[in-house]
Structure formats: C-alpha cells, structure tokens
Design a protein around this nucleic acid. Structure first.
Lengths: 404, 404
DNA sequence: GCGGTTTGTTTAGTTGCGGCACAAATTCAG
DNA sequence: CTGAATTTGTGCCGCAACTAAACAAACCGC
C-alpha cells in the first residue's frame, strides 16, 4: 500500500505563474494601466513589468508606453494596457430555436466578425452543427487571424463529462445528443486549431455578462433568462461558472412558484418553467401564440407596446409575481450578491422593476439578501461571447502553455 | 487616474507554499504515508520530505520512520504520517436547544476532551456564550495543550461579515444578536489565544462530515438536517463551505414541498421547514408533542421503535415524500455529487432508504443526478468538530503564519 | 545472497519574485 | 522657466521554493 500508481507527476506548469491572472485582468478591463496591474496582482512593479512585456511578446496585449496618453493625477503616467487589436481570436457559435450564428471573438469580448446564418434549425444536430462550423471556418479563413479554440452555445443542459444535450426539446433535437463530441469532430475536420467546448446558452451568457457586462465585479452572480420556451439559470462563483458535479446545476425551471398552477411535464404543477416563459405570458394576456421560434419576440413586443392594455398589464404582473417567487427561492439557496435577467424576464424587469424587487425582498427571508440588486443583461450576443470565453479559458489560465 | 490608493501590498505569505496543502492532506487522512503525500501534492520526494519534516518541527504531525511498520507491497516502505497526539488543539463550542457543549479538538477531527455543560439555554446569548466559553477555558487549562483558536456553532443563520444570528428563534435568542462579536469578546477575556469564529451548526456539521465523515471525497456535498424545529442546509464545494455572499446560502427551509400544506411564517405554505421537521412528524403520526427541546429525540425514538404502527409508518412515508421533493429541488439547482442527511432526516433515510431515493430520482430531472448517493451523517458531534475546523482553517491555509 | 522495486536523502541547479536603488515623466508651486 | 514632489518604469541582487539527478536504504521474491 505504498504510494500510488502514477509515478511522479511532473510539474511543467511553472512558467511565470502571474501570467494568467494578469491576462484575465486585462481581458476583463480591470487593469487599464500597468500601475493598476501591479496593485491588482499584488506584486512588485518589476514583476508586473516583466509579466506585461511577456504578454505583449505573446501577441495578446498591447503596452502603450508613449507619454502623454494619460493625464489627471500627478506623478509619472503609467503605461496603458489594452487588448491587441489583431491578436488571436476564439471561434464562437450558437444554436437557438430561430437559427444559428457564428462569430470570431477577441480578448476583451470584442466581436471581430459575425456571420448571421439565419437558417432554420433541423432535427439533426450533426447537420446543424456542421453548417455553423463551416460558417466559423469561413470567417476564420477570411480574417487571417490566429485561433485559440472554439466554443458552442446550445439551448439545453449539457451533461459533463459526456457532453450530451439532455433537454434540447425546443429545437427538436433528440435528448442525449452528443453535441460536445459532434462539435469537436466538426471543428477538427474543418481544420480549426485548438480545443472545442460546448455549454448551455444561459450559462455562457452569464459568464459573458460577468466578465464584460452587467455582472462585472459580482462574486456570486445569479442569471435567470427565458428564450422562447422554458427557463434557464446560471451561477458564476468567483469568476468561474458553477455547473455542479455533472454540468446540471441551476436547472431552475422546476421550482414551484404557483401551487394552483398548470401541470408541468416534470410531474409537478406551477413550475417556473411553465409559469414565466413567453408562452405563459401570451396565454395569460389572452393572445394567440404564434410560431414557437418567435414567441420571445411576440411576447416582448406585446409587453413593450401594449403595456397599457389591462390584460397585458395583468399578465405581466402575474408573471412578475411568479418570477419573484422563483428568484426569492433561489436567493434563499444561493445568496447571490447580484441577479441579472435575460430574455422575457429582462423585459418584465424593465416593465415594472419595483414590483419584482418588492416580491423578491418580501419572500427571500432576510432583508439583507432581499436587497440584492436585480439588473437587466446588457451585452448583445452574450451567449456567443460566453461561448468564446470557454475557448479563451485555457489561455487565461496559462497563456504560455495554451499558446505553445 | 494612475494606480490606486493602496501603495504596494507587500506579500509576506511566502513560506513554503506546499505546507498548507500537505497539512490538509494529513488532517483529512488522505496522506497516510510520505509516498502518498508526494504523489498527492504532485511534487518531488525531496520537497515532500522537507515539507513533512517542517510540519513535524512545528509540532503538528508525526513522521514515523521506524521500519517494519508498513508492509504489503514491494519496495522500501514509506514513512507513516499521522497527526501528533499531544499537538495543538482548537476550542470548539456548540449551543443548541437542549444545552451547550464545549470540547478540545485536535488535528484530524480528534476529540481530545469534552465538557457536557447540560444547562438550559436562556434567552440571553451573552450569558450562554459566556458560560460555554468558561467551560472551554477550563478544558484548555486542564489539558495544558497549545490552542490555535476557537469556533462556535449556533442553530441559526449567521450573517457575514457582521456575525449576527438572524433566526435563532428556536433557542429564544433575539434575532440579529451579534453572536460572533460576543463569542470573540468572551474568548479574548477568557485568555484563550488565537482567533474566534462563529458559524451555523448545519454548515459546520457539513464541513466536519466532508473532512472526516460521510462526505469525504465529495466535491459537491449537500447536507440537509433537522434539529428540533426547522430545517437547515449546507453545501461544501471543493472542500470549502459555500455560505453565499453574506453567509445566508442554503437556507433551504422554504422550498415548497406540499402545495396543500400548512402555512409557514414566511408567507407561503407547505414549506420544507414546517413539513419535514420533528414536530411535523409527531403531528402526522397523531402523537402529542413533548417539550420543544426534546422533539428530535421523541420523534427519533418513535420512528425507530414503532415503525410497524400504521400511523407512524404513514407519517414517515409522508415526510419522506416531502423531503424527497425538497431534495430533488436542491439537486436540480445545485447538482451535488453526494447528499448527507442529519437529525430526523437521517432517521427517515434509515427507515426507508429506497423510498427516499426513488422520490429524489423521480423528481430530479436527469437520471444522472437522480442517482446521486444519499447517505446518513456518520460523525458524532459533527457540529462541534466543524466548529473546530473553523479555528483550524488558518493553520491549514498557512501553518507558518498561523503558528508564528 | 542477489536482482528488482520503491522510497528516503543529498547535492546542484533553476526560477519566480521581493527588495532596493536609480532613472524617467509628469504635476504643482513659485 | 525652474525645482521640488510624486508616481512609475527598470536594472540588479539575492532569497527561497522547487526540480532534477544520482545515490543510499529498505523491502520483496527467488
């Protein structure tokens, strides 16, 4: 019983350990100058200088030492740090009910190029993913930029480590489709370099909002959003996506928010999923629901343009109350320091922010948590940017190893 | 706009960075020999040797190099590592509805000495905490051992960073009592060296079970338990207690588990809190509840001795179904890889494990998560040991700095 | 007793980073 | 315009934590 099977795990991850944290600070915009980088990293100026120079040599950031660029306080102005414009990019792809989309995303969440790809999503994941990866490969070729990897956002929980989509029901894919493997295969066949990752769209949206949007600075960020059908949730803890032990955390759709509510396929009734999605809103407002892939737009337009209508307003208030109950339950369990809402939930927050905040405060037990800020998502294409974050992550963790 | 206010955060925490992880491995029993320590740390044998020697020099562990102690496989037998018997201890105290308790706890969660202190808890937190700290100080004096700090477990959520007890209702303390400050003051006045910490009892029980009990090896450990009244929850993520942004996470008592259930003071009805605690069990079994501070014992005895009684069994099955619904909700949100149950919930699991597992599997959406193991707590005095873990934590994080 | 195996120990680098001293670039006071 | 004050960048030294490699020690089976 001496020792273990593995002989002597060599530790080659030694290269300048502050490199990753430094890049992350520049990436998230928290280190605009070298002086700030120095204090944020908690190292000496000499070390921060060496780190910044190395990141510049890797082609990731730009160190602007020309004087006169910054003014305001006294003392020697610090060198400005910024993401390099023509630096490497990550491939980002997203599949949703009303089509798919491809993009190239640089450091800092900068959209370098996008391809709309407004094609109807078919029931065959391999075909859809193949098409979107083709779009990605074309974008990359046209740009001539270096690529660090690829990320895909899908509207379904993704089980880890298998990488299977467990409930892609609203896009008519078979449950359990091995989307992660399909995407990785397509990426490899298309000649796109670097690793490939797949994640749930709301998770990735939350990640993007945390780094570049309304979630910046939050330590316990809760994100809840609706697409066309169903509700998704995500939690970002200390800058890392919390996906649970097998990728299935924050499946918040089946919290009970209305004991007398309509039955849900999960076996319960009055679940958040069926009580606060666009379909529920349209039904409550007594409107005829249109095609499934445009429910979000229909509900959102209705909410914005006819809020004076009694039926619309009543439906909105009902949904706000239900959503508030669900958020309060999540606050009691997760105790986040910020909540951001997307999709129709964002529109509901915009319609009557005070009502939603009041319900959450009333039903989350402690006043302190009750006062948790609730904000709308601010980023365009946040799932897409989040998919790119997945691909950037290895570089952020260890730039030297990832770019070797 | 150059730099920040803070000048140059000095980084004096440099002393042998592998020291903390190494001590944690010995503390949790995951490094029985120096060879295992070497592979677990991922360092060379030389480094592991130096680290072990330094921990021994600090008086924390024992390195047993006498040959012949270990046999079984071929090759030179490795030196055995163990917690030092007469090493330093942490002070542990617990307040609960039926009294308080004091103890000294060594590394490895070893109870060195305990004082029962079976006194009725009064409505004055300062008085109760003062008495229990006196017991602690007496234990420490009598033992003659070195002390690294003190920890207190209370049956209430503790808000951070204020350290106030938010809902110590079942022990008749005022809501918002500054228990953390009271405890720290008492500890200082009693001449007990080291820092003082306060935490929720279920949180601390979960921490102790994770390191020394049924939760060992779990990466996402969920713990749910009932005392005499109400339900508490805790989550241990990657070895660290997850208490949310202000210490109020895992307040799981107000998940809806019975839409037609009895009203709860939170404003809802059918909450886990009022549907699955000992009082609910006694009422469902049509028994007369005894005094509040012995409800757990009364319910547990009833469950164990009269399970054949139809009313008792019916009540148990009803509570199991409600508990299962609550656990399923938590599984959907947190996706733990292990669940452990304490108090009456533990007894309910023992009574009919299959029924509980079936309900959780049925109502947690994905089969994979549905098969999450559900186990009973195994440690005696787990809250007490957990309180000591709080006090040990600085030593585990940086032994050199904490013992300086 | 002898090879094979696993572990402990010693020695000699390697390196990331703190500490320090000094140079550079700006503001502010006069 | 000049000089002091302030803040930042840079070069150099040294420490301390670690790796790598070679060797010694303690067990096994034959």
């Amino acid at each position: 019983m001496n020792g273990k099977v593995s002989t002597t795990r060599t530790k080659l991850e030694r290269g300048r350990s502050a490199l990753g944290p430094a890049l992350e600070l520049v990436h998230t915009g928290r280190a605009p100058t070298r002086a700030v980088l120095t204090s944020e990293l908690g190292v000496t100026r000499a070390t921060a200088g060496a780190v910044a120079a190395e990141l510049e040599a890797l082609g990731l950031i730009r160190v602007d030492s020309r004087p006169g660029s910054a003014a305001g306080s006294q003392g020697r102005p610090s060198h400005r740090l910024s993401v390099r414009e023509s630096g490497p990019v990550a491939i980002a792809a997203q599949v949703h009910a009303d089509g798919f989309r491809a993009a190239l995303v640089g450091l800092g969440g900068r959209l370098v190029a996008t391809a709309p790809g407004c094609v109807t999503v078919t029931a065959d994941p391999a075909q859809v993913i193949g098409e979107v990866v083709d779009d990605c490969a074309r974008l990359l070729r046209d740009s001539g930029l270096r690529c660090v990897g690829a990320g895909l956002a899908v509207p379904s929980a993704v089980a880890e480590p298998e990488g299977t989509a467990l409930n892609p029901l609203h896009i008519a894919w078979p449950a359990g489709a091995p989307v992660s493997e399909i995407f990785a295969d397509c990426v490899r066949e298309a000649g796109i370099p670097g690793p490939a990752f797949t994640g749930n769209d709301v998770n990735l949206a939350a990640l993007a909002e945390h780094r570049h949007g309304a979630g910046r600075g939050a330590q316990h960020l809760l994100c809840v959003a609706t697409g066309h059908r169903g509700v998704g949730g995500a939690l970002v803890l200390d800058g890392r996506l919390h996906t649970g032990s097998s990728g299935l955390a924050l499946e918040v759709g089946h919290l009970t928010v209305n004991p007398e509510g309509r039955p849900c396929h999960c076996g319960g009734r009055g679940c958040l999923d069926v009580e606060t999605d666009p379909l529920a809103f349209l039904v409550a407002a007594r409107r005829e629901p249109g095609p499934e892939e445009s429910l979000l737009k229909q509900a959102g337009d209705l909410l914005r343009t006819e809020y004076e209508d009694a039926a619309v307003r009543g439906a909105a208030e009902e949904l706000i109350d239900r959503l508030g109950l669900g958020l309060a339950g999540l606050v009691n369990i997760l105790n986040p320091d910020r909540i951001i809402l997307g999709g129709l939930h964002r529109a509901l927050l915009d319609a009557d922010p005070e009502r939603l905040r009041a319900v959450v405060a009333d039903r989350s037990l402690w006043g302190r948590s009750g006062s948790v800020p609730i904000l709308p998502c601010t980023l365009d294409h946040n799932s897409l940017v989040g998919a790119a974050e997945l691909a950037w992550q290895p570089v952020l963790d260890d730039p030297l190893a990832a770019l070797a």
